[in-house]
Protein backbone atom coordinates (compact mmCIF):
# COMPACT_ATOMS: atom_id res chain seq x y z
CA UNK A 1 0.00 0.00 0.00
CA UNK A 2 2.73 2.41 1.02
CA UNK A 3 4.69 1.50 -2.08
CA UNK A 4 1.68 1.96 -4.32
CA UNK A 5 0.99 5.33 -2.77
CA UNK A 6 4.55 6.39 -3.40
CA UNK A 7 4.46 5.10 -6.94
CA UNK A 8 1.23 6.95 -7.56
CA UNK A 9 2.71 10.15 -6.20
CA UNK A 10 5.69 9.79 -8.51
CA UNK A 11 3.41 9.12 -11.43
CA UNK A 12 1.32 12.19 -10.88
CA UNK A 13 4.36 14.32 -10.19
CA UNK A 14 5.90 13.30 -13.48
CA UNK A 15 2.62 13.64 -15.33
CA UNK A 16 2.21 17.18 -14.08
CA UNK A 17 5.75 18.14 -14.93
CA UNK A 18 4.53 18.80 -18.48
CA UNK A 19 4.58 16.92 -21.70
CA UNK A 20 7.51 18.69 -23.25
CA UNK A 21 9.87 16.63 -21.14
CA UNK A 22 8.80 13.41 -22.84
CA UNK A 23 9.07 14.98 -26.27
CA UNK A 24 12.62 16.06 -25.68
CA UNK A 25 13.65 12.81 -24.02
CA UNK A 26 17.23 12.34 -25.09
CA UNK A 27 19.08 9.68 -23.14
CA UNK A 28 18.14 6.02 -23.18
CA UNK A 29 17.32 6.26 -19.50
CA UNK A 30 14.67 8.87 -20.23
CA UNK A 31 13.14 6.66 -22.91
CA UNK A 32 13.01 3.67 -20.60
CA UNK A 33 11.51 6.00 -18.02
CA UNK A 34 8.62 6.76 -20.38
CA UNK A 35 7.99 3.05 -20.80
CA UNK A 36 8.24 2.50 -17.06
CA UNK A 37 5.67 5.21 -16.54
CA UNK A 38 3.40 3.69 -19.19
CA UNK A 39 3.58 0.32 -17.45
CA UNK A 40 2.50 1.99 -14.23
CA UNK A 41 -0.14 4.31 -15.68
CA UNK A 42 -2.09 1.39 -17.14
CA UNK A 43 -2.60 0.06 -13.59
CA UNK A 44 -2.77 3.25 -11.57
CA UNK A 45 -5.10 5.46 -13.61
CA UNK A 46 -8.88 5.23 -13.95
CA UNK A 47 -10.01 5.41 -17.55
CA UNK A 48 -12.56 4.24 -20.06
CA UNK A 49 -12.62 4.00 -23.81
CA UNK A 50 -12.77 1.78 -26.85
CA UNK A 51 -9.84 0.06 -28.50
CA UNK A 52 -9.55 -1.97 -31.67
CA UNK A 53 -7.62 -5.19 -31.68
CA UNK A 54 -6.27 -6.51 -34.96
CA UNK A 55 -4.49 -9.78 -35.60
CA UNK A 56 -4.15 -11.48 -38.96
CA UNK A 57 -7.39 -11.10 -40.87
CA UNK A 58 -9.46 -10.46 -37.75
CA UNK A 59 -10.33 -7.25 -35.99
CA UNK A 60 -12.43 -6.70 -32.88
CA UNK A 61 -13.54 -3.60 -30.97
CA UNK A 62 -13.39 -3.73 -27.20
CA UNK A 63 -14.93 -1.38 -24.68
CA UNK A 64 -12.77 -0.97 -21.57
CA UNK A 65 -13.41 0.57 -18.20
CA UNK A 66 -10.55 0.51 -15.71
CA UNK A 67 -10.74 1.76 -12.16
CA UNK A 68 -8.04 2.08 -9.50
CA UNK A 69 -9.20 3.11 -6.03
CA UNK A 70 -5.68 3.58 -4.66
CA UNK A 71 -5.56 0.01 -3.49
CA UNK A 72 -7.37 -2.31 -5.88
CA UNK A 73 -7.70 -2.47 -9.62
CA UNK A 74 -10.94 -3.33 -11.41
CA UNK A 75 -11.44 -3.63 -15.15
CA UNK A 76 -14.23 -4.70 -17.44
CA UNK A 77 -13.55 -5.40 -21.11
CA UNK A 78 -16.55 -6.02 -23.36
CA UNK A 79 -16.15 -7.36 -26.87
CA UNK A 80 -18.31 -5.18 -29.13
CA UNK A 81 -18.00 -7.26 -32.30
CA UNK A 82 -19.15 -10.83 -32.75
CA UNK A 83 -19.86 -13.01 -29.75
CA UNK A 84 -20.44 -10.72 -26.69
CA UNK A 85 -17.56 -12.01 -24.60
CA UNK A 86 -16.61 -10.09 -21.44
CA UNK A 87 -13.34 -10.11 -19.52
CA UNK A 88 -13.50 -8.88 -15.92
CA UNK A 89 -10.35 -8.49 -13.88
CA UNK A 90 -9.67 -7.63 -10.29
CA UNK A 91 -5.98 -7.25 -9.63
CA UNK A 92 -4.32 -10.26 -11.19
CA UNK A 93 -7.45 -12.42 -11.19
CA UNK A 94 -9.30 -12.57 -14.42
CA UNK A 95 -12.68 -14.02 -15.29
CA UNK A 96 -13.87 -14.51 -18.86
CA UNK A 97 -17.59 -14.81 -19.58
CA UNK A 98 -17.77 -16.66 -22.85
CA UNK A 99 -21.14 -17.32 -24.52
CA UNK A 100 -21.18 -20.81 -25.99
CA UNK A 101 -24.38 -22.12 -27.51
CA UNK A 102 -27.08 -21.84 -24.85
CA UNK A 103 -24.69 -21.23 -21.96
CA UNK A 104 -22.32 -18.62 -20.64
CA UNK A 105 -19.08 -20.38 -19.75
CA UNK A 106 -17.07 -18.80 -16.95
CA UNK A 107 -13.31 -19.22 -17.33
CA UNK A 108 -10.83 -18.20 -14.63
CA UNK A 109 -7.37 -17.08 -15.65
CA UNK A 110 -4.36 -15.32 -14.28
CA UNK A 111 -4.42 -11.83 -15.76
CA UNK A 112 -1.34 -10.44 -17.44
CA UNK A 113 -0.49 -8.38 -20.54
CA UNK A 114 -4.03 -6.98 -20.70
CA UNK A 115 -4.00 -3.95 -23.00
CA UNK A 116 -3.01 -1.21 -22.22
CA UNK A 117 -0.98 -2.89 -19.45
CA UNK A 118 1.16 -4.77 -21.95
CA UNK A 119 4.52 -3.87 -20.37
CA UNK A 120 5.84 -5.70 -17.31
CA UNK A 121 6.35 -3.66 -14.12
CA UNK A 122 9.99 -4.68 -14.16
CA UNK A 123 11.65 -3.77 -17.44
CA UNK A 124 15.06 -5.28 -16.62
CA UNK A 125 14.51 -8.33 -18.85
CA UNK A 126 13.17 -6.16 -21.69
CA UNK A 127 16.21 -3.86 -21.47
CA UNK A 128 18.46 -6.87 -21.92
CA UNK A 129 16.93 -7.98 -25.21
CA UNK A 130 15.62 -4.81 -26.84
CA UNK A 131 16.92 -1.34 -27.62
CA UNK A 132 14.70 1.71 -27.34
CA UNK A 133 14.41 4.57 -29.82
CA UNK A 134 12.05 7.54 -30.00
CA UNK A 135 10.00 8.39 -33.07
CA UNK A 136 7.62 11.15 -34.05
CA UNK A 137 4.68 12.64 -32.23
CA UNK A 138 1.39 11.38 -33.68
CA UNK A 139 -2.28 11.71 -32.86
CA UNK A 140 -4.07 8.59 -31.68
CA UNK A 141 -7.68 8.54 -30.44
CA UNK A 142 -7.70 12.33 -30.54
CA UNK A 143 -4.72 12.54 -28.21
CA UNK A 144 -1.07 13.44 -28.67
CA UNK A 145 1.26 10.48 -28.52
CA UNK A 146 5.03 9.97 -28.49
CA UNK A 147 6.18 6.98 -30.55
CA UNK A 148 8.74 4.67 -28.96
CA UNK A 149 10.35 1.75 -30.80
CA UNK A 150 11.50 -1.38 -29.02
CA UNK A 151 13.85 -3.13 -31.40
CA UNK A 152 15.24 -6.62 -30.75
CA UNK A 153 18.99 -7.01 -30.36
CA UNK A 154 18.85 -10.35 -32.25
CA UNK A 155 16.47 -12.28 -34.51
CA UNK A 156 14.89 -14.27 -31.67
CA UNK A 157 12.00 -11.83 -31.12
CA UNK A 158 9.76 -9.41 -32.93
CA UNK A 159 9.86 -5.62 -32.66
CA UNK A 160 7.27 -3.38 -31.03
CA UNK A 161 6.11 0.16 -31.52
CA UNK A 162 4.25 2.02 -28.78
CA UNK A 163 2.32 5.28 -29.02
CA UNK A 164 2.39 6.81 -25.54
CA UNK A 165 0.01 9.56 -24.40
CA UNK A 166 2.18 12.60 -23.71
CA UNK A 167 -0.15 13.76 -20.94
CA UNK A 168 -1.48 10.60 -19.25
CA UNK A 169 1.55 8.41 -19.93
CA UNK A 170 -0.75 5.59 -21.05
CA UNK A 171 -0.03 3.35 -24.03
CA UNK A 172 -2.57 4.41 -26.67
CA UNK A 173 -1.44 2.01 -29.35
CA UNK A 174 0.79 -1.04 -29.48
CA UNK A 175 1.92 -2.78 -32.67
CA UNK A 176 4.10 -5.84 -33.16
CA UNK A 177 6.19 -6.24 -36.34
CA UNK A 178 8.10 -9.25 -37.66
CA UNK A 179 11.64 -9.13 -39.03
CA UNK A 180 10.35 -8.14 -42.50
CA UNK A 181 8.60 -5.19 -40.85
CA UNK A 182 5.14 -6.63 -41.51
CA UNK A 183 2.51 -5.82 -38.91
CA UNK A 184 1.60 -8.96 -36.96
CA UNK A 185 -0.65 -7.60 -34.29
CA UNK A 186 -2.05 -4.19 -33.37
CA UNK A 187 -4.14 -2.77 -30.54
CA UNK A 188 -5.15 0.86 -30.58
CA UNK A 189 -7.48 3.13 -28.63
CA UNK A 190 -10.01 4.94 -30.80
CA UNK A 191 -11.47 6.77 -27.84
CA UNK A 192 -10.13 7.33 -24.33
CA UNK A 193 -10.84 9.53 -21.32
CA UNK A 194 -9.98 9.51 -17.64
CA UNK A 195 -12.85 8.95 -15.21
CA UNK A 196 -13.59 9.80 -11.60
CA UNK A 197 -15.91 7.00 -10.57
CA UNK A 198 -16.30 5.78 -7.05
CA UNK A 199 -19.09 3.26 -7.46
CA UNK A 200 -18.54 -0.22 -8.81
CA UNK A 201 -22.03 -0.78 -10.23
CA UNK A 202 -20.56 -1.31 -13.66
CA UNK A 203 -18.24 -4.08 -12.47
CA UNK A 204 -20.40 -7.04 -13.45
CA UNK A 205 -21.08 -8.97 -16.64
CA UNK A 206 -24.12 -7.92 -18.65
CA UNK A 207 -24.45 -10.85 -20.99
CA UNK A 208 -27.87 -12.44 -21.52
CA UNK A 209 -29.07 -13.10 -17.97
CA UNK A 210 -31.62 -15.65 -19.19
CA UNK A 211 -28.84 -18.02 -20.09
CA UNK A 212 -27.22 -20.41 -17.65
CA UNK A 213 -23.84 -19.42 -16.29
CA UNK A 214 -21.58 -22.46 -15.87
CA UNK A 215 -17.97 -22.85 -14.79
CA UNK A 216 -15.73 -24.30 -17.49
CA UNK A 217 -14.49 -27.82 -16.93
CA UNK A 218 -11.64 -27.33 -14.50
CA UNK A 219 -8.55 -26.31 -16.45
CA UNK A 220 -6.40 -29.13 -15.29
CA UNK A 221 -3.06 -27.56 -14.53
CA UNK A 222 -1.11 -27.81 -11.32
CA UNK A 223 2.17 -26.21 -10.36
CA UNK A 224 5.11 -28.52 -10.89
CA UNK A 225 8.13 -27.78 -8.74
CA UNK A 226 9.93 -31.08 -9.11
CA UNK A 227 12.84 -31.21 -11.47
CA UNK A 228 12.12 -34.02 -13.90
CA UNK A 229 14.51 -36.96 -13.89
CA UNK A 230 13.92 -37.47 -17.61
CA UNK A 231 14.86 -34.16 -19.17
CA UNK A 232 16.80 -30.97 -18.56
CA UNK A 233 17.16 -27.62 -20.26
CA UNK A 234 20.49 -26.62 -21.76
CA UNK A 235 21.37 -23.31 -23.34
CA UNK A 236 18.09 -21.45 -23.74
CA UNK A 237 17.99 -18.83 -26.51
CA UNK A 238 19.40 -15.49 -25.33
CA UNK A 239 17.08 -13.42 -23.16
CA UNK A 240 14.48 -16.13 -22.53
CA UNK A 241 13.92 -17.29 -18.96
CA UNK A 242 11.72 -19.97 -17.53
CA UNK A 243 8.84 -18.21 -15.73
CA UNK A 244 6.46 -21.07 -14.97
CA UNK A 245 6.19 -24.84 -14.98
CA UNK A 246 3.06 -26.93 -14.52
CA UNK A 247 1.57 -30.34 -15.13
CA UNK A 248 -1.43 -30.33 -17.41
CA UNK A 249 -3.99 -32.97 -18.23
CA UNK A 250 -4.59 -32.75 -21.95
CA UNK A 251 -7.67 -34.26 -23.54
CA UNK A 252 -6.75 -37.49 -25.27
CA UNK A 253 -3.41 -37.94 -23.51
CA UNK A 254 -3.09 -40.79 -21.03
CA UNK A 255 -0.34 -39.08 -19.00
CA UNK A 256 -0.06 -35.49 -17.76
CA UNK A 257 1.92 -33.19 -20.04
CA UNK A 258 4.60 -30.91 -18.61
CA UNK A 259 4.01 -27.28 -19.65
CA UNK A 260 6.94 -24.86 -19.24
CA UNK A 261 6.53 -21.14 -20.00
CA UNK A 262 9.43 -18.91 -21.07
CA UNK A 263 9.46 -15.16 -21.49
CA UNK A 264 11.84 -12.40 -22.52
CA UNK A 265 9.67 -9.82 -20.73
CA UNK A 266 7.40 -9.19 -23.73
CA UNK A 267 7.08 -12.39 -25.75
CA UNK A 268 6.05 -15.74 -24.27
CA UNK A 269 6.78 -19.26 -25.43
CA UNK A 270 5.22 -22.52 -24.24
CA UNK A 271 7.09 -25.81 -24.16
CA UNK A 272 5.19 -29.10 -23.80
CA UNK A 273 6.99 -32.32 -22.89
CA UNK A 274 5.31 -35.72 -22.91
CA UNK A 275 6.37 -39.32 -23.35
CA UNK A 276 5.86 -40.61 -26.88
CA UNK A 277 2.72 -42.75 -26.96
CA UNK A 278 3.59 -46.15 -28.34
CA UNK A 279 1.90 -46.75 -31.68
CA UNK A 280 1.53 -43.02 -32.35
CA UNK A 281 4.01 -41.64 -34.82
CA UNK A 282 5.97 -38.80 -33.20
CA UNK A 283 5.51 -35.33 -34.64
CA UNK A 284 8.40 -33.36 -36.08
CA UNK A 285 8.59 -30.15 -38.04
CA UNK A 286 7.72 -26.46 -38.27
CA UNK A 287 4.50 -24.70 -38.95
CA UNK A 288 3.09 -21.20 -38.65
CA UNK A 289 -0.57 -20.43 -38.00
CA UNK A 290 -1.37 -16.73 -37.81
CA UNK A 291 1.23 -15.16 -35.51
CA UNK A 292 2.04 -18.38 -33.74
CA UNK A 293 5.10 -20.47 -34.61
CA UNK A 294 5.01 -24.18 -33.84
CA UNK A 295 7.91 -26.63 -33.65
CA UNK A 296 7.78 -30.32 -32.81
CA UNK A 297 10.70 -32.63 -32.27
CA UNK A 298 11.76 -35.76 -30.47
CA UNK A 299 14.30 -36.11 -27.64
CA UNK A 300 14.87 -39.69 -26.62
CA UNK A 301 11.45 -41.05 -25.65
CA UNK A 302 9.98 -37.57 -25.37
CA UNK A 303 7.73 -35.66 -27.73
CA UNK A 304 8.66 -31.98 -27.59
CA UNK A 305 6.20 -29.30 -28.74
CA UNK A 306 7.03 -25.58 -28.64
CA UNK A 307 4.81 -22.68 -29.68
CA UNK A 308 4.60 -18.96 -29.22
CA UNK A 309 4.19 -15.58 -30.89
CA UNK A 310 7.89 -15.47 -31.71
CA UNK A 311 10.08 -16.15 -34.77
CA UNK A 312 10.54 -19.77 -35.83
CA UNK A 313 14.20 -19.68 -34.80
CA UNK A 314 13.13 -19.16 -31.18
CA UNK A 315 10.70 -22.07 -30.95
CA UNK A 316 13.30 -24.29 -32.64
CA UNK A 317 16.04 -23.17 -30.21
CA UNK A 318 13.84 -23.85 -27.19
CA UNK A 319 12.89 -27.30 -28.52
CA UNK A 320 16.56 -28.08 -29.08
CA UNK A 321 17.44 -26.98 -25.55
CA UNK A 322 15.55 -29.95 -24.10
CA UNK A 323 17.93 -32.81 -23.40
CA UNK A 324 16.67 -36.29 -22.66
CA UNK A 325 18.28 -37.77 -19.57
CA UNK A 326 18.71 -41.51 -19.51
Amino acid sequence: MRIKGFVLACLFASTLSSASQTVLAASDDDKWQILQKAALAAHALSYQGIFVCQSGQQSKSVQIKHFFDGQNEFARNVLLDGSPREVLSQGGDLIIYNPKNEKIVIEKRRGQNMFPAVLPANLAAVKQSYTVRTGDIERVAGREAQILFLEPKDDLRYSYRFWIDTEYGLILKSVMFNSRNEMMDSISFTQLNLVNTVDLDWFKPKIDSKKNYVMEDEVPAQADYNPSPHWMLKQLPAGYRKVDQMLRTVHGKPLPVTHVVFSDGLASVSLFIEPITSGVKPRAGHSVVGNTSFYSSVAGYLQITVLGEVPEATVAAIANSVVFVK
Binding site: Q54, L79, D185
Partner: peptide
Protein backbone atom coordinates in the same frame (compact mmCIF):
# COMPACT_ATOMS: atom_id res chain seq x y z
CA UNK B 1 -0.95 -19.50 -19.28
CA UNK B 2 0.98 -17.06 -21.45
CA UNK B 3 -1.56 -14.87 -23.23
CA UNK B 4 -0.59 -12.17 -25.69
CA UNK B 5 -2.57 -8.93 -25.36
CA UNK B 6 -4.78 -9.70 -28.35
CA UNK B 7 -5.43 -13.36 -27.53
CA UNK B 8 -8.08 -12.34 -25.00
CA UNK B 9 -10.21 -10.98 -27.83
Amino acid sequence: SAPSASSYY
